[in-house]
Amino acid sequence: MPSYICTTCGVGYAETDAPRDVCLICADERQYVNARGQGWTTLEELQSDHVNELLELEPGLWGLGSKPQVAIGQRALVVERPDGGVMWDCTPVITDEALRAIATRGGIRAMAISHPHFFSTMVDWSRALGGVPVYLHEDHRDYVMRPDPAIRYWSGETQEIASGITLVRTGGHFTGSSVLHWAEGAEGRGVLLTGDSIMVVPDTSWVSFMYSYPNLIPMNARMVERIVKAVKPFAYDRIYAGWWDRVLDHAAKAAVQRSAERYIAAIR
């Protein structure tokens, strides 16, 4: 039986004879069911006409996407390490070429995902990488549409999954929304990989915060303050948000603070 993948959000479901009528992730008010109707695909179908795109973003960090774009354009980030790297977030397509490229860069020892809109084909990726653990905050448990022994639920506010690589629960977009802090990134000044918990905006000198991005539902002031407080203990100078072009390349910590102040002033 195939694992059906929602064509709108890109999330893979447990194997069934036929897909559901509606994707549960898209039916949530933070996402949307396609106005043209629910659509489904499978990994095998995607592999027939898609490839993985790999781009080096800075020394020790590269991105991995699906081309042409699938669903909302999710792309993964891989932090290279000599003892096995960490994949952050996920992309639906998996190709043999990408797996070989990963192997030449030291392999993957763990995966971690910011929130349900990036769960994608996480189980297929884990299996293709030899059954590596997939770290999700326990508050995401009800959003996992394809349970698997590889999924490791972590609790609390932080979780170190490798030396210098720490998951931080920010909340906001989802209760369990998280970011990844990479201490050695940006030439040792620190990097945040944020999914869309903290979104770099198009001019790339500010960030913003939303409860729902496609439905334009803002976040309240208390949650914005919580997000800023969650990342405040960490040193970081650069942010990679959830899409290729959303990178704030310097003075990121100050930008988060002034962006939160601007946001809160606007909604009040």
Rank of each mutant, 00 (worst) to 15 (best):
G164I: 10
L193E: 10
I108F: 01
V256Y: 09
I25K: 03
V86C: 03
A260L: 07
V33R: 09
S155G: 11
S205H: 13
L54Y: 01
N34S: 10
G164L: 10
F118E: 02
L57F: 02
Y32V: 04
G185I: 04
A112G: 07
Y240E: 08
V144E: 09
S197N: 06
D237A: 12
S177N: 14
G12M: 14
E58V: 07
F174D: 06
E45F: 01
T121H: 08
C26N: 03
S177G: 15
T91L: 00
E225N: 13
A128I: 02
T8M: 09
T166Q: 07
G156P: 13
G84K: 03
A98H: 04
V134D: 02
L24Y: 03
S163R: 14
D249V: 03
G172P: 09
S155W: 00
P92W: 09
A186P: 11
S3G: 12
R81E: 14
L99H: 10
V231S: 06
E184W: 03
I151P: 08
V22G: 00
L248D: 14
I217H: 14
G65I: 03
G10H: 09
I102N: 08
V224W: 00
H250F: 02
L136R: 02
V79A: 05
P149R: 09
P68G: 08
G73C: 06
Q69L: 12
G195K: 00
I108E: 02
H140I: 06
S155A: 12
S177A: 15
R169V: 07
V228F: 02
A252N: 07
T16Y: 01
I165T: 12
R226S: 14
T121R: 04
G131R: 13
P133S: 02
D203W: 08
D89F: 00
V247M: 00
M199D: 13
Q159G: 00
D21G: 13
E53H: 08
K253F: 10
P68M: 06
G60E: 08
W125Q: 01
G65S: 15
G63A: 15
I227E: 04
H250L: 00
A112M: 07
V134R: 00
R30V: 06
D148V: 02
K229L: 10
E80F: 02
R189K: 15
G73Q: 09
P214R: 02
I267L: 13
E58R: 11
L136C: 06
I108S: 02
V51Q: 12
G242H: 06
R238N: 11
D21T: 13
G195N: 01
G185K: 01
S155R: 15
